[in-house]
Amino acid sequence: MSRAFVKEDSGAEVLPERPISPNRNLVTRRGLALIEAEIERLREELATAGGQGDRDGVARASRDLRYWTARRANAEPVDPPAEGDTVTVGMAVTLVDEDDEQRTWRIVGEDEADPKAGRIAWSAPVARTLLGKTVGEEVALPAGTMEIVAIDRESERF
């Protein structure tokens, strides 16, 4: 058989594409800045890997760059309203439980969610329960019933 018809193995790592959420890509201004910073970082990483002949590095950076470029292309920046007392994306919500234990969550875009840091994705069940609620309302959460005691409209800084 002629070598012209044999596919050569490039030696590069074959990576599956990163799945993109089917939900709307609502993002805070901080989230949008994080996406843009990640795109810039990955462009630099791709250039470095290409310059070093690192095929696996090129494959990883290319795959991740495709993901973040797609996320940037369909990003819908959301700013909390200047007035109003209804929970929306970008706001921080403070709740108190029956034992007077407080918990604060900021509702953010899916890619910037970090539950340990108090940031939950707008599409998460807890966030969906909180969206549209106001101070004084009680909400049933997996940890029990909690009352909304404060809403912070101030946007989080990058």
Rank of each mutant, 00 (worst) to 15 (best):
D9M: 04
A12S: 14
A12N: 07
E13W: 14
V14M: 11
V14A: 05
P16V: 07
P16R: 06
R18M: 11
P19K: 08
I20F: 04
S21I: 03
R24M: 10
L26E: 00
V27Q: 12
L32H: 07
L32C: 10
E36S: 09
A37Y: 01
R41L: 02
R41M: 07
L42V: 04
E44I: 13
E44P: 05
L46E: 04
T48R: 15
G50A: 13
D54P: 15
V58F: 01
A59G: 11
A59H: 10
A61W: 04
R63W: 07
L65F: 00
Y67R: 12
N74W: 09
N74Q: 12
P77M: 01
P80G: 05
G84W: 13
T86A: 10
D97R: 06
E98P: 00
D99W: 04
R103P: 02
R103I: 11
R103Q: 13
W105Y: 14
W105F: 15
R106N: 04
G109E: 06
G109S: 08
G109Y: 08
E110P: 02
E112A: 07
E112I: 07
E112D: 07
A113F: 03
D114K: 05
K116R: 11
S123D: 13
A124H: 11
P125Y: 04
P125M: 07
L130E: 03
K133S: 05
K133P: 02
V135T: 14
E137W: 01
E137K: 06
